[in-house]
Design a protein around this nucleic acid. Sequence first.
RNA 1: GGGGGGAUACCGAAGCGGUCAAACGGGGCAGACUGUAAAUCUGUUGGCUUAGCCUUCGGAGGUUCGAAUCCUCCUCCCCCCA
Length: 432
Amino acid sequence: MKNFVEELRWRGMIHDVMPGTEEYMNKNMTSGYVGIDPTADSLHIGHLVGVMMLKHLQLAGHRPIALVGGATGMIGDPSGKSQERSLLDEATLRKNENELKKQLAKFLDFESDVENRALLVNNYDWMKNFTFLEFIRDIGKHITVNYMMAKESVKKRIGADSKTGMSFTEFSYQLVQGYDFLYLYEHENCKLQMGGADQWGNITTGTELIRRKLGHENEAFALTCPLITKADGGKFGKTESGNVWLDPERTSPYEFYQFWLNVSDEDAKKYIKIFTLLSQKEIEQLIKEHGEAPHLRILQKTLAQDITTRVHSKADYEAAVEASQILFGKGTTETLKKLDERMLLNVFKGVPQPEVQRSEFDMGIGLLDFLAAKTGIFKSNGEARRMLKDRAVMINKNRVDENYQLSSTDLLNNRYVIVQKGKKNYFLIKIV
RNA sequence: GGGGGGAUACCGAAGCGGUCAAACGGGGCAGACUGUAAAUCUGUUGGCUUAGCCUUCGGAGGUUCGAAUCCUCCUCCCCCCA
């Protein structure tokens, strides 16, 4: 039994841990769980910290349980900003659960015969037939409103500075989540719940419920990891186009790779401990090398390679690297012109590819019309005009201004035009 | 049930009859500098056929030459008292 808590500690993945957790886990093989909202059919990288905690749990010899929050997801956790959640019908819920499991399987072992094989459960299964009356009688009775009100997440919503108040549904959330822990404790002998720092209050409601309902000799543990932040204070895991998903249909492997490659130095030092399985020694070495030659961005490259390969594949990773080199290396119009069609499409896989009618192009399409209405690269002519004035637009790697006239000499392989908005945003326009 | 406060652009927040497409801050985007980093500086941030015009200040009406600003009704939210 490896020291699980210690492993997370040096990786900076512990925000708070209940006393006794480390001692207990060093002596006993146990099960631990993390909750995941099934609001989409894919995980995004915000979920990854929880998944990595489960991964380390399994590596340490314990049993990881991924809890899909089919029931809790319908309510909405008041500790987040999230307001009303939409109710998922059961078919969607099951489909999402299934897709999530596939992605989790890239990290966790659900298959082999080992004792600590990972488990996936859905709290909808035990909540759906639980009536309101039964719930308030059997569960609600054990927890006082006073206790629930003392939670930070509730206080914040009830206090004078709150503008929206809090519905009874949201108030009940912690109890429903707490019941999950009780259920897993009783049915799966699960003694540990993990989550983000914002989940501490919810988790302790669970441990409290276990103690009060089952008796004080029952031990349950809690462990939270810090909220993943960016050094500049921005939200982690968001890009211009929204969440970074694990599903290649939502976020292409190229974009995925680019996300990690673009992480700042300061963040890279943190993230490499959290999102890769490299040893402490290896990471220290990398940080040292990076410090000696920061421009080589060894940390970012290692980080991007490790995660892209795990989530997608080695081939996807290599394609992303190749594409990045062409796009960000010393590429010129000439390099682009030399690419054959297959290579071109390969490089720009994962880049938006709007289409334009050949007839319109041949008629001498106006630059603004082309950049805005026809391709949607810019939301309006005004925006396109502004960007052109800011010298932010490049066509086939050539900076252009408002007076530029497109013509057939701009076509690569007779049917493609590459437009760049700023340095990093590429578009491959197809003439059809 | 009674009393009070509020709803402004992506967010926060000014404005309280014309000079308001709406101050300021944050965020976003872009440019310079760099290492596809951070910090910094600069520009920009409703739309258009851009010295002009059109649509926007919770919703619907009204007063006025003119309304985000005044009046009426409605919707939603917060606070206090019962």
